[in-house]
């Protein structure tokens, strides 16, 4: 009997949503389980690190690693799995771009720990206990700044459709060239159901915050002054957020033609502002109180700005 291909799933600095996404495959997960041998999956199975260390080099067909690299342990595990795998897939926005944990790079490790364990209003920590202090890196990094990555599955989390398509492609050897993102390479607007309601010549007078707006459920959100990042974001998710009357926040990341998602999204929205005088421009921009949080929500750690940032 031919050996089933071996796969591994691992999570680094993540929320667990990517693990859920695998489970969300529903019935299809049984097909996956049939087709492959999962030899490591901390959230679901009892295999230990030592089991992985015992595996021969490149004996795993593919390791799906989600979460960003934020600690020494995560870096070690990423390197370990890389040695043992033929292919490594950065699974989800955190692994691909640093994800929401990447926003920690707007602050410092010291400030974050102080905030979480000392200063926040609900903390009572008279003994100043800091778990994991020695463990955490100074900055958050996407997976490919630590190990070579073969493929990326975008999304926060990736949607079931692209996960199963990716798994099938990898198992049948029909995946695109190495380094590709396994999702369509055009922006979300193409598949958005509200596309036709977007005016041809849209210039933005101001920005509304979604929490303060009652968005029309049938019209293009950007046309309603909500900062929808659909135009800058890779499609493939079926415009789920738009279906929920929420603007796209960019979790699928950029197309292959864009190097820095946040900067590009800013370029598009910025130039589309109607105002020409500096004061009027600033007034319009007051509707975006947190530009970094908006444009780099998932991709701050992957910004070209921090190309050279040292890891420790």
């Amino acid at each position: 009997m031919t050996q089933k291909p071996k796969v591994a799933f691992y999570w680094c600095a993540s929320c667990g949503g990517c693990e859920e996404a695998v489970v969300d495959l529903g019935a299809k997960i049984l097909d996956v389980a049939e087709a492959v041998d999962i030899v490591f999956w901390p959230v679901a199975l009892d295999f230990k690190r030592a089991d992985v260390e015992r595996l021969p080099v490149r004996s795993l067909l593919v390791s799906f690693i989600n979460g960003a690299i934020r600690s020494h342990e995560q870096e070690e595990m990423a390197r370990l799995l890389r040695r043992k795998s033929q292919l490594v897939v950065a699974f989800g926005a955190c692994a691909q771009l640093g994800g929401i944990p990447g926003l920690a790079n707007l602050s410092t490790r010291r400030a974050l720990l102080d905030e979480a364990y000392l200063k926040s209003p609900s903390t009572v920590n008279p003994d100043r206990i800091f778990p994991q202090v020695a463990e955490l890196d100074e900055t958050v990094r996407p997976l490919d700044r630590v190990i070579d990555v073969d493929y990326y599955l975008p999304g926060c989390p990736p949607v079931p459709g692209i996960i199963s398509a990716a798994v099938e492609a990898l198992l049948t050897g029909t995946a695109p060239p190495r380094g590709s993102v396994l999702a369509p390479d055009r922006a979300l607007c193409e598949e958005c159901p509200r596309k036709d309601s977007k005016p041809e010549k849209l210039l933005l007078a101001s920005f509304q915050r979604i929490s303060l707006a009652a968005a029309d459920e049938t019209k293009c959100l950007l046309a309603q002054g909500l900062a929808c990042l659909g135009p800058a974001t890779r499609g493939g998710c079926g415009a789920l957020c738009i279906a929920g009357n929420m603007p796209c926040t960019g979790c699928f990341g950029p197309t292959s033609r864009v190097r820095d998602y946040g900067a590009k999204a800013l370029s598009a929205l910025g130039a589309s502002i109607e105002a020409t005088e500096p004061e009027a421009i600033d007034a319009a921009l007051d509707g975006i109180p947190d530009a970094a949080g908006l444009f780099y929500r998932y991709s701050l750690a992957a910004s070209r700005l921090t190309k050279e940032r040292s890891c420790r």
Partner: peptide, 25 residues
Amino acid sequence: EDCSGCKTCIPLCPYGAISFREQTK
């Protein structure tokens, strides 16, 4: 083949060089 039809570019050209094609969207 890369264009998603997001129309961001349409109002930007002062020369009217960019247009949105209905047939191809």
